[in-house]
Design a binder for these strands. Structure first.
Lengths: 208, 208
DNA sequence: TAATGGTTGTGAAAAACTTCACAATCTTAG
DNA sequence: CTAAGATTGTGAAGTTTTTCACAACCATTA
């Protein structure tokens, strides 16, 4: 085991892929899989899979393989998605609304427990049964809610301001959908989702 | 220049970040930037920035820096986002609808020129002024449209089937929002956007 | 003109990541 | 019990990516 060695970010990304894959496999009637089965299902090299797991321990049986349910639960525990996490959503626009209605969130143990916006025309109204709160009340509200994770779907121009408020409110993990790099201290983690970037990478590969 | 050397995917991702950054800088009254200005703005190492550019040519002046407008246009040309690209959208659900209304798409030269779904209750109706077409007509329609890029916002269970149709219709670049790995031949490129994965990576970093 | 301060482009060094390859282990069958 | 076949976990090798460091260059000032 390599528990003292830093886990590469790429390995974490792959772990989430294994988890998704195992989730599907759970519904089959097979109990056990080998690392090369994972390779077939995900395209990720079998040795890579084993090494990724080795950062966290030993979960397989030589000569046999891995128990699907066990491995699923182990990876879920490693990634801390084995129990429900409260998440707050900032920005009740089109995208925020779509996310709020997305069943994949609860299915993966993420529960949106608060929706915030700064638009007077939205505050107080309900979106999919969630009341939209005034963003200026976030500090007080999150003192009760205690969420550590926020999803940010606000316009570019408000993104940085909102982030500062979030951090003051105890948020330390931010999923940023605003297409702008936001600036935070080292103890705060931001992951950006920008599908324009993805489209652009596709565009680069246009043959012409 | 390294034109004969393979460009790392990570470099392409960074190029899209530089482009976004330059886009903002265009609005300032500064004309010229240095690689370390880029580092300050994006967090990406200055030498990394220069090496990324070196895959494509020499665009700066030693002792001076880079002209913002010029560099922006150059990178846009490299990434082939210097002119409008037609894109088709498959899946007119919540997410598809949100994407369709997203102004970032036209602002970045991606124009949605066709919306498709397989739901009888949606086909024929309009979404943000776009008629929703029957997905079974895609081959005929894309023969006229000629889009190479498709955005996929369909449920997991239909994803693979739809992809096969898309490829038959001349699509070679797919942005997949369905949280499932899809299987394609080598000449087709797929980029996945899965924010559950991103949330999961954040979750792993919860301190507790 | 010469000297100074700043910046690029890039070969080479360093670091990080992936893949290989094999000892160790397990299960089954005879 | 032994042999055969399968699979893990991991040190080492191989590959890729990032960072360093410096020659070459430009603009400005004296």
């Amino acid at each position: 085991m390599n528990k003292n060695i830093k886990v590469p970010m790429a390995a974490l990304v792959r772990l989430t892929t294994y988890l998704r894959c195992l989730n599907e496999m759970k519904q089959s009637n097979v109990q056990t899989i080998s690392s090369s089965d994972i390779e077939d299902a995900t395209g990720i090299n079998a040795a890579q899979f084993r090494k990724d797991l080795s950062y966290f321990g030993e979960f397989g049986k030589p000569g046999v393989g891995y128990n699907i349910d066990e491995l699923h639960d182990t990876i879920a525990r490693i990634l801390k998605v084995d129990e429900e996490r409260p998440v707050i959503l900032i920005g009740a626009g089109n995208l925020g609304s779509a996310l709020l209605g997305y069943s994949g969130l609860p299915e993966n143990n993420f529960r949106i427990v608060g929706v915030f916006d700064n638009d007077r025309h939205k505050i107080g109204y309900k979106l999919w049964d969630n009341e939209i709160y005034d963003i200026s009340t976030i500090k007080a509200r999150n003192a009760k809610i205690g969420a550590k994770i926020a999803i940010l779907t606000v316009p570019v121009k408000s993104a940085q301001d909102v982030v500062d408020d979030l951090i003051e409110s105890g948020i330390s993990l931010i999923l940023n959908f605003a297409p702008v790099p936001i600036h935070v201290s080292k103890d705060i983690m931001v992951r950006n989702v920008c599908f324009i970037q993805e489209l652009t990478i596709l565009s680069y590969h246009l043959k012409s």
